[in-house]
Amino acid sequence: MARPKFYDLNVHTAPEGKNTIEEMVPLAKRFGYAGVAVTDPSNSCKPLRSAVTDGFEIISGVELSPENASKLHGLVGKYRQMVDVVVVRGGSESINRAAVENSNVDVLSNFGSMKENGLNHVLAKSASDNDVAISFDLYDIIYLRGGRRVKALSNFRKDLSLVRKYDVPFILTSNARSLYDLRAPRELMALASLFGMTREEALHGLSVVPQRILARNCPPANYVMDGVEIVDPSEGGCDQ
């Protein structure tokens, strides 16, 4: 089997995070990632452009934290053309709902782990229909201790059962805010196994789903639209 290509689609850099992308890339490379998406908040700085250096992909992204649901659609429309990965930082019920109903959103993160705002069957179904990935932010499991981590783990377990039932796409991310928040893909898999995620599922969330998101947003050069293909007339693609 070919080596899977791992991606972390939710990494923050300076000034929002503590380290610049130049500092973080060597470590991500060392950990065996094929690429990271830099998802800084829309108000902190202009999103950078996607680039590939020495086989490592730096993917442009943005993290939107809209004040209310109606602003979300405007923001998504504005950034969709500029970046490859659109992450919405959820929180309130209405923003979560609007995000999973907008198929231009790639990832919904921080959708709340408290009882009132967490993932529910309605959101899960909608996310599945619109192909919006749910992100499991393992940052909490690394840094929280005691009761709050217990709560985070049990919420993730509950979310995972909904993800399985409705076949919701999901990604695993370290949600790194500094160099020392990054974790290697296998360490993230181990953390995800704490709340019952299998190795295959974790692999899916670290490799398959991110690649699908990227393929959708960085189409090949001769792409027109879904189901349409440019046929080279010299090859006699269609007979007259």
Binding site: R30, F31, I141, I142, Y143, S178, Y180, D181, L182, R183, A184, R186, E187, L188, A190, L191, S193, L194
Partner: peptide, 18 residues
Amino acid sequence: RAVLATISSIKGKKVILH
């Protein structure tokens, strides 16, 4: 591995156990 991944600092120094 999960235990080792949750180690984030030792005596105030930030660390990652890889």
